[in-house]
Computed example of a mutant assay.
Amino acid sequence: MPKPFTPKVVTANALLEGDVIYMTASGWTRDLAEAEVLTDEADADLRLIEAQSQPGSIVGAYLADVTLQDGVPHPTHFREDFRATGPSNYPHGKQETVKEERF
Rank of each mutant, 00 (worst) to 15 (best):
M1P: 09
M1L: 12
P2V: 11
P2T: 12
P2A: 15
K3R: 13
P4V: 12
P4L: 14
P4Q: 15
F5Y: 13
F5P: 12
F5V: 10
T6E: 10
P7E: 03
P7C: 09
V9A: 00
V10L: 10
V10I: 13
T11P: 12
T11R: 14
N13C: 10
N13M: 08
N13R: 13
A14S: 13
A14K: 07
L15N: 08
L15T: 05
L15A: 07
L15C: 04
L16P: 02
L16G: 01
E17I: 05
E17W: 04
G18A: 05
V20P: 10
V20Y: 08
V20Q: 15
I21C: 13
T24L: 06
T24Y: 08
A25L: 07
S26E: 15
S26M: 08
W28Q: 12
R30C: 11
R30M: 14
R30F: 06
D31A: 15
D31E: 15
L32F: 13
L32K: 12
L32R: 12
A33R: 09
A33L: 06
A33P: 10
E34G: 14
E34I: 10
E34H: 15
A35K: 12
E36R: 15
V37P: 15
L38C: 15
L38F: 06
D40E: 14
D40A: 11
D40S: 09
A42P: 07
A44C: 05
A44N: 08
L46I: 10
L46W: 13
L46M: 13
R47M: 03
I49V: 07
I49P: 01
E50K: 06
E50R: 07
A51P: 02
Q52W: 01
Q52A: 00
Q52D: 03
S53V: 00
S53W: 00
Q54F: 00
Q54D: 07
Q54T: 01
P55C: 01
G56M: 01
G56V: 00
S57Q: 07
I58G: 00
V59D: 08
G60M: 01
G60T: 03
Y62S: 01
Y62F: 00
L63C: 07
A64L: 01
D65S: 09
V66A: 02
V66L: 03
T67H: 02
T67M: 01
L68V: 05
D70Q: 09
V72M: 14
V72H: 12
V72I: 15
P73A: 00
P73L: 02
H74G: 06
P75I: 02
P75D: 07
H77I: 06
F78M: 03
F78K: 04
F78H: 11
R79P: 03
R79L: 09
R79F: 03
E80P: 07
E80T: 04
F82R: 14
F82P: 03
F82Y: 15
R83G: 02
R83K: 09
R83D: 12
A84L: 03
A84R: 06
A84M: 05
G86D: 03
G86Q: 01
S88F: 03
S88W: 08
S88A: 11
N89G: 08
N89R: 04
N89T: 04
Y90D: 05
P91F: 03
P91N: 11
P91C: 06
G93H: 11
Q95R: 15
E96C: 10
E96F: 11
V98D: 05
V98C: 12
K99T: 10
K99V: 08
E101W: 12
R102K: 10
R102Q: 15
R102P: 05
